[in-house]
Design a protein around this nucleic acid. Structure first.
Lengths: 186, 186
DNA sequence: GTCTATAACCAGATAGAC
DNA sequence: GTCTATCTGGTTATAGAC
């Protein structure tokens, strides 16, 4: 294999295991074994397990928005675009076995004082909020129950709530309901 | 101290640490130290750390509903009662330093195959859903945007989403917004 | 029932050969 | 840069004295 591919392979394996098993339940040993590399090679590319976690979060955010923006780009109508956001997460959760949001999951696993991790997670959530808000602005001014500001908040909270709820019940019912509600609100 | 108080003290300390630090980051050592008991005493009252976790979840659910029902009992009007649910969680999150929902947090820390834990968590969530649904039924039949069924789902998802979001941002803004939205929907 | 001591194991991280 | 061997300190759980 290529030398530079090692780092990618570590991240690939770590990403999978951190999501499937959890960060704390995934040991360095398992990562080096499944990535088929030597112990010290990992520490050559990452300073520590925490450093690997932060790299994972950063890469995960990039991939998440790439896929999300690609998915919702199919629709040009603002309302359709917003509803596609629910479909995106539904499809994603289906594919990934209803493990919930990977960013939220990590935030529940680290110490509350771990500002680096919480900064990374809130960065992703902020970016999603901005994405939603920008589309809501393009909506025609019908007489809605909620103002544009509150509507954007509602959509965000419904998405997050449904992602969590789906991960508990291990099915897509929550996200389906959330989309139904969103459809009425928009 | 009383003999029978030992079990209570273990649960008390474990509850605090599981929430503050996380389940996986809390070792048996720290629990026995802070509860000021012997190692084997813990294993006399609980078969394993997992057993202690399940006892924690059970007790936590009982306490949660006791406090919640007590809090919302102040209001007799159905709409006020539903909105009080948001106040309850806001107050609770304020007191507990925005660590998020304790049940969700645990579900993010254990293996996805740990059915005992996921059953305990979904039990608590189902009970909350039933509580909400029962009150929604008592609402007068105004011409609302959402049917009673969808309204109950919306309130549940808003609560869960706001709890999560608040735990990321470490403030009560999410729950305040959620209550504002709920106020319009009901 | 509570205690101390210890077993058996696994974690993250590093040293030094190549 | 990658390897193997090792260090140190952590974990859960148990044995046996009192």
């Amino acid at each position: 294999m290529k030398k530079s591919a090692v780092r990618e392979r570590i991240l690939e394996v770590a990403s999978r295991l951190f999501y499937e098993q959890g960060y704390n339940l995934t040991g360095i040993n398992q990562i080096i074994e499944e990535a088929d590399i030597a112990r010290a090679s990992l520490y050559n590319h990452f300073d520590s397990k925490t450093d690997l976690l932060l790299a994972y979060l950063k890469e995960a955010e990039d991939i998440w928005f790439l896929e999300m923006e690609n998915y919702t780009a199919r629709s040009s109508d603002p309302k359709e675009k917003l509803l596609a956001l629910f479909d995106f997460r539904m499809e994603r959760q289906n594919k990934r076995g209803f493990g919930g949001c990977q960013f939220i999951k990590i935030s529940a696993e680290v110490s509350r004082q771990d500002t680096q991790v919480f900064d990374a997670v809130s960065h992703q959530k902020n970016r999603l909020k901005v994405f939603i808000t920008d589309i809501v602005k393009d909506l025609p001014d019908n007489n809605r129950l909620l103002t544009h500001g509150l509507l954007a908040d509602a959509l965000f909270l419904l998405l997050e709530g449904a992602a969590i709820s789906g991960s508990i019940y291990k099915n897509q019912e929550s996200m389906t309901k959330a989309k139904e509600i969103a459809d009425k609100l928009i």
